[in-house]
Design a protein around this nucleic acid. Structure first.
Lengths: 163, 163
DNA sequence: GAAGAATACTTGTAGCGTCAAGTATAACAC
DNA sequence: GTGTTATACTTGACGCTACAAGTATTCTTC
C-alpha cells in the first residue's frame, strides 16, 4: 500500500496547506486594493511587458498557466471594463490578439506595488536565500511534471515522457 | 518601486505555477477515479482518523484549511450522498458534529491508494530527501504566516476538545 | 485541390467557493 | 436575571473555472 513516511507527509501536508491558503490571500489583496483577481493581474502584467502590449490568446494562456477557455472568459470581462481590447491576428485569422489599453496599462501599474509588497509579506520575506533557492528549484521541477497537456510551456519538445 | 531580484522572481513564479497547476491535477484524478473533489477527500480522510469517526464542524474546517461556509456546503453534498451524517453536539448545542458513515468509510478507503499514488507521481517522487526536507520547512513557515484568522490551526490556547 | 485533421479560439452550462446575512446558543458583565 | 457580545454554524446569491460543444481557419495528404 502506498503510504508516506514522516518527512514525505510533512512536505505534502505543508504544500497542500499553502496551496489552499495562498491563492485566497493573493486574491483578497488584489480585490481589495485594485478590484482585480490575482489571475487578472497576471494577465495584465504579461501584456504589459509584451512587445506592443500585445499577445495572442494562446501565448497568454501559456504564460499564465491557464486554459484557453478560462482566459477567454477573463478577457471578455477585462474587455468589458476597457482594460484590454481584442482584434483578429492578421497573420493567422484563427487567432485573436489581445492588447492592453491605455487604461489597462495605468491600472496594472497602479496595482503592481501592492502585489509585490504582498508577495514579500506572505512569502519572500519569511525565507532565507537558501530556502528561496530551494523553492525555485523544487517548484521548477514540479512545474515540468505538472503541465498535463503542454499547455503552459512553449512546446520545445514534442512530448512529455510519461511513466 | 518594490521589485524582485532574479532568485526571488524564480521562486515566486515557480510557486505560482505550482499553485495554479497542482489543485486541478489533484481534483482531476480524484474526480475521475472516485467521483470526489480533492477537498472532499480531505474531509473524509480527517473524519476517518478521528475518534469515533466524528468531528465538530469547526475542528474539521481548521483541519482542512477551509472556511466554515465552504465546509458546510461540502458536508451538505456529502450528506446527500450518504457519505457523512450530521447531528447536534450534545455538549454545545450551537455546534454540529459530522460523522463518517459506513458507506463513507468504504469510499475513502477505496480512494486513498489512488490519491497517494498521485501525490507520489506528481510531487514526491521528483524530489530528493533534501528537497523534501526543505519543502516541509518552507511550507510550514509559510503556513504559519498565511493563516489569516487563525482558522486552520487548532486553537491551542482556548482549546477545542471533542465532546 | 479537395477531404480530413489539427489548431485557435468562443460560448453555454453546471458546479464549487466566497461573501453577506441570518439563526441559535453560550458566555460574560452587571 | 437581563442585556451584550461572541461563537457556531446555515443559507442564498453571485462570480469564477472546468468541461463540452461549436465555429472558423490552417495544415496535410493524396
Amino acid at each position: 500500500m502506498p503510504s508516506m513516511d514522516e518527512l514525505e507527509s510533512r512536505a505534502w501536508r505543508g504544500l497542500i496547506r499553502v496551496i489552499e491558503l495562498l491563492p485566497p490571500a493573493l486574491d483578497a489583496q488584489m480585490q481589495r486594493d485594485s478590484n482585480l483577481t490575482h489571475f487578472e493581474f497576471m494577465v495584465l502584467s504579461m501584456l504589459r511587458f509584451a512587445p506592443d502590449s500585445t499577445l495572442r490568446m494562446t501565448a497568454l494562456a501559456q504564460g499564465t498557466n491557464a486554459s484557453l477557455a478560462r482566459l477567454s472568459h477573463v478577457c471578455s470581462r477585462l474587455e468589458g471594463r476597457g482594460l484590454v481590447e481584442r482584434f483578429d491576428c492578421p497573420a493567422d485569422r484563427r487567432a485573436t490578439n489581445v492588447r492592453l489599453t491605455a487604461a489597462g496599462n495605468e491600472w496594472v501599474i497602479a496595482a503592481a506595488p501592492g502585489h509585490f509588497a504582498t508577495a514579500r509579506a506572505l512569502v519572500i520575506d519569511h525565507l532565507t536565500p537558501e530556502q528561496l533557492a530551494s523553492l525555485a528549484e523544487i517548484t521548477e521541477a514540479l512545474g515540468l511534471r505538472l503541465d498535463p497537456e503542454n499547455r503552459t510551456l512553449p512546446a520545445v519538445e514534442s512530448g512529455t515522457p510519461t511513466e
